[in-house]
Design a protein around this nucleic acid. Structure first.
Lengths: 148, 148
DNA sequence: ACAATACGCTTGCATGTGCAAGCGTATTGC
DNA sequence: GCAATACGCTTGCACATGCAAGCGTATTGT
């Protein structure tokens, strides 16, 4: 591997794949939601007034607006989110996280923390992890998808 | 964000999403292949004898065997890989990278290095990137998917 | 004011993917 | 040696996703 940029990018993609695969299994088995549904809840909770227009959420998640539309239906059905309209602009269909959605999010985040713990704790000490997190933050801080 | 494990995992996933989205666009536009096809070529080139059984490749890429089967057909059609059989075990269908596949891989890796350069160079100095890469290596080193 | 444009959302279609079943080939156990 | 089992691959089905077109609503330009 001759190029440090290439090497780092590949390792980053692989590490993320590993984590995502683990989480997909755990989230599905334990909480009955997908990783993307988890991210929907997370984005909504952190948004102003705990709500976002569909298009804005799509941008933050790097997915298309049609996917958001299609994800919203079942999540509304099981009560994790609600659909609100805007008084000023009838085009907007806000997605709002419900109390049940917050509860689900909280449980799922605990699973995430546990799984991440397994992965990180046995490999890095706290100082390393702190630095790693800070470095990652520089990568995502300018992004619309930044959650942290 | 109260949990450092959670925070790091989220940032890692987001950073990977960003990079993958960029690469998907570039790879498709410039080289006419998907990110997953790129990874197929990469795994094959690094494998012993530049070939792998479908099941083994599936494991390394965290995707199902059926997906491998379906990705193989068009890649054979455009000559990036070939299908070889095993003399000893007729069940095995090796995927082998061709010279054309190596050429495509080489061009695509250059694009990867360039894109990763844009991302990393303006944010980190070389020492930081080196450390980051080393830390990531600890995360993926035990994994079947490890390429680096 | 009103036509033209832009925007947000949804839907039809095409594609990518996983799961489970099926098929053919090796390996194991008796 | 042969039946039972395991393994590798493919295929049918279901589901997720992106793109482009369409619909209704706001905004802009004249």
């Amino acid at each position: 591997m001759e190029n440090l940029y290439e090497q780092s990018a590949l390792r980053l993609l692989q590490a993320a794949d590993e984590i995502r695969a683990r989480l997909a299994g755990e989230f599905s088995a334990v909480h009955g939601i997908s990783v993307n549904e988890f991210f929907v809840l997370l984005h909504l909770e952190r948004a102003t007034k705990h709500r976002l227009p569909r298009v804005e959420l799509a941008k933050r998640m790097h997915i298309s607006a049609s996917t958001i539309t299609r994800m919203a239906a079942p999540m509304e059905k099981i009560g994790l989110i609600e659909r609100h309209t805007d008084e000023r602009d009838a085009r907007l269909a806000f997605m709002v996280i419900t109390d049940a959605g917050r509860e689900k999010l909280s449980e799922t985040r605990a699973t995430l923390a546990k799984q991440a713990g397994y992965l990180f704790d046995e490999r890095w000490d706290e100082a390393t992890l702190n630095q790693f997190s800070t470095e990652l933050h520089r990568l995502v801080s300018g992004s619309v998808s930044n959650l942290t």
